Simulated assay, not measured.
Amino acid sequence: MSPETGPEIVVIGSVNLDLVVTVPALPQPGETVLATSYDEFVGGKGSNQAIAAARLGRDVAFVGRIGDDAAGTAVRAALADEGVDVARLSPTPGEKTGRAFVQVDERAENSIIVASGANSRLSADDVDGAAPCVRDAAVVVAQLEVPLDAVRAAARLAHGTFVFNPAPARRLDPELLGLVDVLVVNQGEFEVVTGEPAAEDAASMRVAVARTDLPGSVVVTLGARGALVWHDGELHSVPAPVVEAVDTTGAGDTFVGALADALARGEALLDAARWAVCAASLSTLSLGATTAMPRSAQVAELRALSAS
């Protein structure tokens, strides 16, 4: 990253240590199952999205909080190794770094429990302290694994495209949603955030999105089925290529990071979504949220094959 130009993308968000077990099937309440494997990875929605964008070639800066523990040192080093600027990833005395406990079954379905730790201490003051790079970034990305006040500060400071992935989902006020340029949600999140029920078919979804009266664009991710893009009063379907998924844990975050990458390069939203579904598909090919996050050449190859 050039000090004269600053980062292309700033991500405000969470960083965790992910503890991942694979199981034959996700356990039912009261059931004990034996894992077939166990591993640890860097995770957190913010960290995942930052790594996804950095692997695709963008200059990315991260604003967040870690604990004053060994996990914090490890995740900070892992982000730096990916080329992410961690100057604004602050240690938090007396707090533990966030953890995510991830179960993945043989069908690549997962369940996740998050202990926020230091992520819950990220404040509007932290974001305001990063104001110069937030203002100058082509794209600013935020999620909801950090306090809402930090997200609001980012939205107000952003002069570029503000991409908001409100997960874990909650109902949001019109003032914040009015600052969002691109809202990225899955179907369940769409219903929680907007109060409008998500629909399975494109025609009904067009009505649902139009009824929200959101000023920005909306991207609804559909997993293996791709995404729907609402932009300038039109709804477009973006199918995903077919792959043999191993672990879908980081697919949504890869989508957001790749979308930010394409938007920072000046791609139109619909083309950015096509790029993002290919990146997300590739990210499911290995265990762990970030392990299979692709490089630009890989996404370009899959996109070309999908278009042929």
Rank of each mutant, 00 (worst) to 15 (best):
V63R: 01
Q28T: 03
T221M: 14
N119K: 07
A292R: 02
V185I: 14
R55H: 12
D213N: 15
L34N: 08
W275T: 14
F101M: 14
V33F: 05
A158K: 05
V229W: 05
L183V: 12
A169L: 13
T161L: 14
F164N: 13
A80D: 12
Q143Y: 01
F162I: 13
A78V: 06
G160Q: 14
G223M: 00
D213K: 15
S2P: 04
R295H: 12
F62D: 02
A74D: 03
R121W: 03
L305N: 05
G188C: 07
V163Q: 13
D18P: 03
R211N: 14
G13K: 00
V193S: 13
K96S: 12
V242M: 07
W275C: 13
P166L: 07
G57H: 07
E8W: 06
R121N: 05
P294H: 09
A154H: 03
D85Y: 02
S111A: 15
V207Q: 13
A203N: 04
D39N: 08
E301M: 07
D213Y: 09
V141E: 04
E200S: 15
V42L: 15
S116Y: 04
P168C: 11
L305V: 09
G72T: 03
D126Q: 03
L157H: 05
N119V: 01
A307P: 04
P168T: 10
S306G: 12
A273K: 02
F164S: 04
L228V: 02
P197N: 14
M1Q: 11
D39R: 13
T249M: 06
E175T: 13
N186P: 11
D247E: 08
